[in-house]
Design a protein around this nucleic acid. Structure first.
Lengths: 120, 120
DNA sequence: ATTATATGTGACCATTTGGTAACATGTCAA
DNA sequence: TTGACATGTTACCAAATGGTCACATATAAT
């Protein structure tokens, strides 16, 4: 059942990825770790990434595919190797369309909660 | 299999929620919509929230439980009602420990990708 | 040409997720 | 105290997720 149409959370005009896909991609710790690896050193191959992750090669491949589909990773073939690069734009989108909004009301909402708790 | 120990992404000292739980909670569009509802009007009851969401009452309850466990929502009993309040702290944590890091390198990384693409 | 190495695919499995329906409990109000 | 209403629980189901293994294909190097 479609409980809520996420399309009003539009995709970023530049990266064209639905916000929902980005959130889902970021929901897994292994995938976040892969992004961290690329943050440390961009342009790693599949093999490079497998070496640091205690997971089967194919497991890593599937995670990388999810990241690619969310546009968080872009790739470039170089001979028989495939180089992976971090694309920070979807993360910027997550901030613009979501995190930032909640950060703005931050202190006001915190005191709101504080008052509410004291009241009870 | 534990492919990657997410504990080094420590929970926020103030809200005590593991970052991973927060990401997972945010990964579902219905849950983000619930947070949006509370952002619009804080302190809604379960019934209030069900009314605006085209999902069964119990479906909403389960989503709220996930949000509570991630500390994104805090509650307060008032007689037979349960009031739900948005807690922005875990979102702040997501920013501090994750999104902010990637935002900082933003422009540099973008040009990196641009160069990389032109090169091929 | 052959071999080694890197990425890609198909089939499969266990667990989690997102949802429903039916029933149980708790509390306010007449 | 009884009825109405709000939240909570138990049991169940389908589909998606996260992972494995074995095999296939493509490229580089000797």
């Amino acid at each position: 059942m479609v409980t809520y149409n996420a399309t009003h959370e539009r995709g970023c005009s530049a990266c064209l990825t639905p916000l929902n896909d980005v959130f889902k991609a970021l929901a897994d710790a292994s995938r976040r770790h892969l992004l961290d690896c690329l943050y440390e050193r961009d342009g790693q191959t599949l093999g490079d990434l497998v070496a640091g992750l205690a997971m089967s090669r194919f497991g890593v491949m599937k995670h990388l595919r999810v990241l690619e589909e969310a546009n968080l990773v872009v790739t470039r073939r170089k001979g028989r190797e495939k180089l992976h690069y971090l694309n920070p734009m979807p993360i910027q989108m997550v901030y613009d369309r979501w995190v930032g909004k909640y950060r703005r009301g931050w202190t006001r909402r915190l005191s709101h909660i504080k008052n509410m708790l004291e009241e009870s």
